[in-house]
Nucleic acid binder design. Structure first.
Lengths: 215, 215
DNA sequence: GATATACGAAACGCAGCCGTATCGGACGCC
DNA sequence: GGCGTCCGATACGGCTGCGTTTCGTATATC
């Protein structure tokens, strides 16, 4: 492969270090293509709404330049999504509650971002494009969940969380509550904080007398 | 309107009671169209993936029969979604925990249904088709949330929930945790139950000594 | 400057879909 | 049995997109 086609390992961006027979591929064009793809994937209704021609037009690029890198539309979207990683930053400096508050506010704020809107469209088309969804989940979603997982495990180790608590359930609660709304409608004021405290404290009446300082 | 077009109030299914000049519209065809529309909306990637021609073909119907009832594709989808109501049934016979368990299991089981897959695609296209999403939210989503709201309020009235608990936050936790996964991937065994108990009891370590019977 | 590749632009044939129009026939009421 | 409407089928012009090909040009290394 590398002999005949000058090492065109699609969409890896691996610049041929040792050799470069002709004009090298434009890194600028590649970035513009990826940006345009993500924009369209976020704006249009799903994978079906993204067209190569629209991507080329928005990126200011010829279709040739796209097909030289990715063999078809689905591969293009896969590549673009892989480049769209946005891992959460582990605050890692406070109590579990403090760390979760930081992350929850971040999750709440991100909802209107391109990233979040892409998520809906990719998840919705999961059955039509299972490989696309699987890679997205592995490359983008999981690293983000891993940060939450780490924070929660720290809390368990420190005894700040109830010993039997299941981190996966906690992640589902936090992420679900904050992300499971169409990007269109807004979160109420103070919602991320309320979610964190509800997850930590529960909403059930206590079987034992509880210190009623609030949370 | 009713004079010139024989009362064709689009997609209301209101049979002209007093008068019926010509051949009445086939109720069977209408149902087939709606079913086909929902099927396609669930299977394809979003609104963009639904085509009138595909609906007609799947429903075994001429395109004319569709355009006679709905003026365009978006109206067709709106109409089909309105007919796809599936309100939750209020169990209404046990404690809050028992009722929530019933509802949570129902939510978990519904995830792979056509209904849930439509939801993802409609929510994802919310920005491209805001009116469609708004009506869907009002006609389908809200009645379902209302059931949860009623159960939670009952719990508050009975003192089974902590007095200050916010039902909206609780709904977000429950629905989010159970529904915010692509229809593709499965819920772990016992997940709905774990979610309910996590929401009721919280995951935080208790400030006071807690009866360690589990829940 | 020779060579090799990438670039953007344009055009291709093919396919799908939109929304409309036109069929012959079916149906229900008067 | 006549009338009005609906039925499914088919075809239309127009548009958009796919994936390929062909341009002339630009930009690297040798």
């Amino acid at each position: 492969m590398s002999e005949t086609t000058t090492g065109q390992t699609f969409a890896t961006g691996s610049v041929p270090v040792g050799r470069a027979p002709g004009r090298p591929r434009s890194e600028r064009a590649e970035k513009a293509i990826i940006e345009a793809t993500l924009d369209l994937l976020a704006e249009e209704s799903g994978v079906a709404g993204v067209s190569i021609e629209a991507v080329a037009a928005r990126a200011g690029v010829g279709k040739t330049t796209i097909y030289r890198r990715w063999p078809n539309k689905e591969a293009l979207i896969v590549g673009a999504l892989a480049a769209a990683k946005r891992p959460l930053r582990d605050p890692g400096r406070g109590t579990v509650r403090e760390d979760l508050l930081v992350l929850a506010r971040e999750l709440g704020a991100e909802r209107r971002d391109r990233h979040a809107r892409c998520f809906w469209n990719v998840a919705g088309g999961a059955e039509k494009h299972p490989e696309l969804y699987a890679r997205y989940r592995h490359d983008v979603i999981e690293p983000r969940r891993e940060v939450l997982r780490r924070v929660l495990r720290r809390g368990l180790d420190r005894g700040e969380l109830r010993p039997g608590a299941d981190p996966e359930v906690a992640i589902a609660l936090l992420v679900g509550a904050l992300a499971h709304r169409a990007p269109l409608d807004r979160l109420p004021e103070g919602f991320p904080e309320a979610v964190v405290d509800a997850v930590l404290g529960g909403i059930g009446a206590e079987p034992t007398v509880r210190d009623d300082t609030g949370r």
